[in-house]
Design a protein around this nucleic acid. Sequence first.
RNA 1: GCGCCCGUAGCUCAGGGGAUAGAGCGAGAGACUUCUAAUCUCGAGGCCGCAGGUUCGAAUCCUGCCGGGCGCGCCA
Length: 529
Amino acid sequence: MNDPVTALHATVSAAVSGLTGGEVPELGLERPGNAAHGDYATSVAMRLAPLLGKAPRDIAQLLADVLVADPAIASVEIAGPGFINLRLAASWYHQALSDMLSAGAQFGRSVVAAGDEILVEFVSANPTGDLTIGSARNAAYGDSVARLLTFVGEQVTREYYFNDAGNQIALFGQSVQARRLGAEIPEGGYPGDEVGELAAALDLPDDASLAEWTARGIEAMMVRIRGSLERMRVTFDLWTSEQTLHASGAVQKAIAQARSEGHVFEQAGATWLRTTSFGDDKDRVLLKADGELTYFAADLAYVGLKFERGAARALYVLGADHHGYISRLKAGAACLGYDPERVEVLIYQLVTVSGERMGKRRGNVITLDGLADAIGVDAARFFLVQRSHDQMLDIDLDLAVETSSKNPVFYVQYAHARCQSILRKAQADGLTTTGTGPAHAPEPQEAALIRRLAEWPDVVATAADLRAPHRIVTWTQELAADFHAFHHDLFVLHEDEEIRAFRLSAVAATGEAIARALDVIGVAAPDSM
RNA sequence: GCGCCCGUAGCUCAGGGGAUAGAGCGAGAGACUUCUAAUCUCGAGGCCGCAGGUUCGAAUCCUGCCGGGCGCGCCA
């Protein structure tokens, strides 16, 4: 696939290579923030100065002499300490437009990733209640990362792991039973409304065993969770339960494996994994003195299982309150003989609602469904990944509910709807065209829009690399702004066929770009609003 | 005490070595006889927490400090 920016990159690279006899440093080719500095600028002359032993501006001049001959470049100027500022020619814009349109949905996928299987485990909330807003961020972020990686060519498997063993689950089972029988909820149990609803709906006789209440309760809760996630357009390839790890013998097998690697020891009646050998700050118990396995024992088995199944990398999406798991999981993998670099833990910061932290026992729980009810799935997803995952996120519910019409998601979606509306009108009025109207010299608003569209391959590659879907959101807003300005100033269905062809191509490319970008974050691109 | 994240405009935040640091919201002034005004244009608003260091060049990388958030169980 042809990519207009890559072509520009190659042009500059060739010029540099001609000067150095082959060696090409990082070009530093980017869009300057200041329009006076050209459409693109490179700082390569300054980087070459130590290598060539010449003044940066002299090097810049030599490069400029070569670059100015390229038909895609309209003008070259040298500025400041040795920047080379490039202005693109009309031919570049036409080529860019036609490249993007012919690539269509494939545009930006040219950045070929390794193609190894990447396992992305996310959400993984225990089935003891509805998903909360914290899980909502996990779902939106994790799913967007998975979509991003898929977009750049990785083979992604999405997995949800849930604990269905241990104390919390026992308490949940007791709570379900108590709710059904109208008895007192046990200390530390689950008083949520959803537990009551679920208990009432279970097709079990009142004298069913606690084990049955527990198993059926978990099953029903998982159905609820799955439904909430599907509503948010989040799906999984694998659902793995803790019990299956115990039942299959995977836990015992993992402990044996770690033992054979020499990382297991006994102390004070418990069995330990020496994770400190691999950078953890303390060793971890696998088998407690009372004979019970810890959750970490299952976690250890699970990480081993991921690699055994053939995953090249195992990504975990966890909330900031679990950041202590990073060194633990990596060390666990190392104790099993795997390269800890293959474990990658993505931590997102906590979500607060109107400045307050939420908790099931604080009585101020906002659920994923509640959020979607309040502001809609599109706004919820957009909002949840709008900010860096490294940044705390506060959801001002009053504002989110009340001002949904000024939520940025509508701004972006409206740009897409406008594109489709224009294309429909062109069709209806028999004004459709072919090609990009080669004789038309782009107006500034047209040029700005095309340059923005051409950024996509770099934007999506960087976002995938940094596991930072918020960069997609930022870009869609910039693109929408460029489009709205273009639309406001220039009439698309112009009587001049050359102009109309160019603008219709730009509108088509913009519509595709918005839809493609929004899809990466799981947001719909409506054809009309 | 130790570890992770954050500190940028009144507020919420982009910006992951480049030039005069950006956007949205809020407050101010304007723009619709044409494809959707859910739009656009203009101005105001900044010791980029502080201090050092690396570099031709630092909001960005390194060190220390200050402030905020979250963790640091044979809990789950």
